[in-house]
Amino acid sequence: MTTTSASRAIDARDLTKTYKGGVHALNGLSFAVAPGTIFALLGPNGAGKSTTVKILTTLSQPTSGTATVAGHDVGKHPDQVRRAIGSVAQRSGVDRQATGRENLTLQGELYGLRGRDLTVRVNDLLDRFGLTAAADRSARTYSGGMERRLAIAMGLVHRPQVLFLDEPTSGLDPEIRADMWAEIARLAREEGLTILLTTHSMDEADQLAQRLAIVDQGRIVVEGTPDQLKGELRGDALQIQLGAPAPNGEVHAALDRVPGLREITLDGATLRARADNAATAVPPLLSALDAAGAPVASVTIARPSLDDVYLRYAGRAYRAAGTEGAAQ
């Protein structure tokens, strides 16, 4: 293979997938993931995220295009890809009639682990994912969070190089979701694991991913670090509530002297502006308004959200796209 693919844990090129009946799930999707990083595919239901994961995990074949995972071609050497990856699907794939320990043991056996190595590995994972006490209970008795933790432990049993997490926190309670985020971040940090996660949650991508790509209608519309994508929206939004309505001219005259402020509008006692870095713009802004005799009651700073990014690149609001996707 080329030298570039060796330095990429995942390299997908021009993937297309047309299902029977003519549904175009992917329309030329390309992206690459550097080893040891978390990469998020972000988009609404039906955008093509799960199809991408199915192709990269050898479950499904692309109609056209190529992909390598951990340096192996998914179409030509699926067995080598399977040994190098762990995969946690949306439907966890946990066998609910078996115990947590049995699920982990079978999974390890399928990857060739045997005997003492297997026992030790299974115990370690049970311990690490807080499942030791429930290890010998049927997985049917597990809570949603426990089942998801077991599924991730199963994906890790053979120490894969690349881990796929398809919607890892969908359907989980907020506090369990926060725990899961901490665990996922730890995996990439401490084990040097490459993680590809798909999510329809802006927060999740923002929290976890070093890089993310927004997927819409089977292709990637934009890719970058969360900060880059948000930074391209030209700065933070500032909303200042004045103690009383102030004359427009005086306020503008005062604020024109504050560096870095743009798009200043005043509506009664509500003042709006944008700044490249709101945190450094606030102190001079406060003193300028004070000097102009317009005391400030409150200041709100809003970092641009990935919602704004999605709106800009996909050309439509995220929530609207989500409903559309779900209706398909």
């Binding site: 995990t57 050898t58 479950l59 399977r82 040994r83 995969s87 699907a89 399928l110 990857y111 060739g112």
Partner: peptide, 8 residues
């Protein structure tokens, strides 16, 4: 699907 993405 879980079995199918392992070397089973």
């Amino acid at each position: 699907d879980r079995f199918l993405v392992t070397p089973a």
